[in-house]
Structure formats: structure tokens, C-alpha cells
Amino acid sequence: MTAYTATVTVRLKRGVLDPEAETTRRALERLGFELDGLRSMDRFEVDLEAADPAAAEERADEMAERLLANPTIHDYEVEVRER
């Protein structure tokens, strides 16, 4: 078994309104910053042990499917590295 950290990034699907990001963008502009856009997303770093990177990725993928993301509104990606 090898120790891995699986990074799960959960973001809203394209086209789904993100009012929090929009509010944050406006606040940045109020502070005088110039920007063309802003997206926010959640990142989870999951420490786990698995036989190989593929097995670690598979488990993290299922975590995203079943809890970390809501497939109705979210896309997600998983990245695995040794820790």
C-alpha cells in the first residue's frame, strides 16, 4: 500500500449561475482591481492509502460522486499524488 493525497476539485457546471463568485468579483472591483471574470470552486485534499494511483483515484472519484459533488450542478476532477 502507498500513501496518496487525492485532490478533488468541485466546480459548478458551465452555465450554472454562481452568485457568490459574482459578489466576490464586484467586491474586488470596488477595491479598485481590474478583472475580466472570476470563478470559485471547492478543493478537497483526501489522504488515503491504496495499492496504486488508479485505485486511489477510483476511491476519490466515488467520494466525489456520492458526497463531495452534486452531479446536478457540479463537475469535478480528481488528481492523485504520492505523499
Binding site: 450554472v16 449561475l17 454562481d18 452568485p19 457568490e20 459574482e22 459578489t23 452534486n70 446536478t72 450542478i73
Partner: peptide
């Protein structure tokens, strides 16, 4: 109910934030 899959769709942040 939506998170459980009892009903379809999702309720998320109000457009007004």
C-alpha cells in the same frame, strides 16, 4: 430531499446571494 434523490434537481444559492 433533492440531495437524497427523492426528488430531481438541486436547490442552491439564491441569485441575489
Amino acid at each position: 430531499g433533492c440531495e437524497t434523490g427523492l426528488t430531481d434537481g438541486a436547490f442552491t444559492t439564491n441569485a441575489s446571494a
